[in-house]
């Protein structure tokens, strides 16, 4: 990297291991709290927020899947589940900025949308192949060794499509309103700085 040893003023969360130097040993953190090291969306970096995000995101995502699956009998469903899941990504974005958002996504928002549409359309259309009305629901009940009696509705597939579309919607809005604007600001900042740097260089040249 070109920046090596430039004395970056920003604290850098280095990974543990033999090559990176101190701190060494078992107490050194094995990984950073977020996967990329960049400035967060707003304000200065907050370790507290990063740690909280790291701890919470898996739980939030699990909750979202729970809401999706349990929706038939309890409050929840694809829409609520999708909102919760996108909340996890929004948290990630707030903690780590746009690069963190991009790094955390399994795929691009548009792909998510497309996947969701395919799943929902498939769930709507497949009953037609079996001579049943569109969006018809089938119920399967069976007994599994550990889980006991399990009930599955084919509507769950449709709900999964809804889930994916909601996540895709929120993420593309965040990407458009948050990340893009942030990128634009950064660009403007950089241009301003480059301008000043050029001015500084000109002054230096005159002195020489």
């Amino acid at each position: 990297m070109a920046l090596e040893g430039s004395g970056a003023p920003r604290p850098r969360a280095t990974a543990g291991g033999s090559s990176a130097g101190p701190p060494e040993g078992w107490e050194a953190p094995r990984e950073r709290w977020l996967s990329t090291v960049v400035r967060p969306a707003f304000g200065p970096r907050s370790v507290l927020l990063e740690v909280a995000a790291r701890l919470l995101i898996p739980a939030i995502l699990t909750l979202s899947v729970f809401l999706l699956v349990s929706g038939h009998d309890r409050p929840g469903g694809g829409f609520a589940g999708g909102l919760v899941a996108s909340m996890a990504y929004v948290l990630r974005y707030i903690a780590g900025g746009r690069h963190e958002l991009a790094a955390g996504l399994p795929m691009r928002p548009n792909t998510l949308l497309a996947l969701g549409m395919i799943v929902a359309c498939g769930a709507a259309g497949v009953p037609l192949l079996f001579g049943r009305p569109i969006l018809d629901t089938v119920k399967w009940e069976f007994t599994l060794p550990v889980f006991g009696d399990v009930k599955l509705l084919s509507a769950l597939i449709f709900e999964t499509g809804v889930f994916l579309i909601v996540v895709g919607l929120v993420l593309s809005v965040v990407a458009a309103l948050g990340a893009r604007m942030e990128a634009e600001e950064a660009e403007a900042r950089q241009e301003r700085a480059a301008e000043q740097a050029r001015a500084a260089r000109r002054r230096g040249g005159e002195k020489a």
Partner: peptide, 14 residues
């Protein structure tokens, strides 16, 4: 009959 106890959800998904 449709297989769910949550009425709102069954309306939405079925």
């Amino acid at each position: 009959q449709a297989g769910g106890h949550n009425l709102v959800n069954v309306i939405l998904a079925d």
